[in-house]
Write a protein that binds this DNA or RNA. Structure first.
Lengths: 207, 207
DNA sequence: TGTTGTGAAGTCGTTCACAGCT
DNA sequence: AGCTGTGAACGACTTCACAACA
């Protein structure tokens, strides 16, 4: 697998191709063209082919792509061909909803630990809320791959430090603050108000 | 206000500058440089200045930016100097958590209507769940500006159609499906699993 | 001296256009 | 005829580098 200089947007698009391929497969389709993928995702057919080209040749000229095969190839690329153990910190409204977010489980992300500083012992699905102070101990036993931070922003850096000390190498951060992490730790920030603010901007310029 | 060809990423960054300016202001700071903003957001100082340059000249050479003023200018640009009325459809785990998401209210987004097909009449904050079939009627009275779709993907297009018919011009869609909307309606898709999949990709290439 | 504002240069991602294959 | 794979052209965003100013 080549891994040089793949644009981040390409990975995002692969994720979205993967989703529509699943749908197509569920519908019973066997073959799809870049034009077909384009219709389902809004990405241009050229772009679809270029995105695949970073990783190999998955199609057949004159024909298109075998959906099942393409889906498997994409899974291998983005790593959803295996299961990842996820630890989540912060069980407020948003955090609590993420624990049971169906999209995570169906894509291979297994909630394996939930942490907070209160409501310790409370049950969510088949997990019990653990105190964040026990994170490292539990991490050693369970072996978390990814961390999700959904705590208030004052505590986010501290939680990130704990996760990193415990060996977590990738963090999804919902707190609206830039976290300081070592180079070898991947961090992705998601700020939900930012999305509304972008819409707000587009509304404003129309008036 | 110039409005030609502003990159979407610039708007996202303005949103994030705005957030750190609020924090700086709360700390009692009065002046900040592009370098200072850079330290708080991870955006290069050059980029910070270029982003502002799309909209005007907000700083003083040799000095920096007056935080209060800059904050107000950004608010005007992204439209958070006023309040927007938000309607949300879908009160599952995620939808329910968005209704009370603190980040929305503090940025000027007011929850003004919540809709589902079940649990009608149930209370969330100071709102009662309304049936989605009554959306248009209620929209006429309340005048929603933005819609948030958090329903299962099979129903998302239908809900979008209802919102658009009722005059909504901007939609934030959490359903993992591409919605068909007229050109004059802004739509922003957010797929939470996509973020985890990006982390999954970065984990995979390291192994 | 320190910092902004901005044209120019550079880099990165997308679209074009077509050869190559079925 | 239809569709993929890809170099080349294009366009968009970022970084550089420096004049203007406090």
């Amino acid at each position: 697998m080549k891994k040089n200089k793949i644009p981040e947007v390409t990975i995002m698009r692969l994720s979205s191709y993967s989703r529509v391929l699943n749908d197509a497969l569920a519908k019973g389709d066997k073959i799809i063209s870049s034009k077909g993928i384009s219709a389902l995702t809004g990405v241009s057919p050229d772009q679809v082919r270029k995105d695949f080209a970073y990783f190999g040749e998955f199609g057949v000229r004159g024909i298109g792509y075998n959906i099942e095969e393409l889906k498997n190839n994409i899974s291998k690329i983005i790593g959803t061909d295996r299961n990842w153990k996820v630890a989540i910190a912060g069980l407020g409204h948003l955090g609590g909803s993420l624990v049971s977010y169906p999209g995570f489980l169906t894509r291979g992300f297994i909630m394996a630990g939930i942490f907070d500083v209160k409501n310790i012992g409370e049950k969510y699905g088949n997990l019990y809320v653990e105190h964040i102070d026990n994170f490292e101990t539990i991490a050693k036993k369970v072996g978390f791959d990814l961390g999700i931070i959904v705590v208030p922003k004052e505590f986010a850096q501290n939680v990130a430090d704990i996760m990193i000390k415990s060996g977590i190498k990738a963090i999804l951060n919902f707190a609206p603050i830039m976290l300081d992490v070592p180079e070898n730790v991947e961090i992705k920030n998601v700020d939900l108000s930012m999305f509304l603010e972008m819409l707000s901007y587009y509304m404003s310029i129309k008036m």
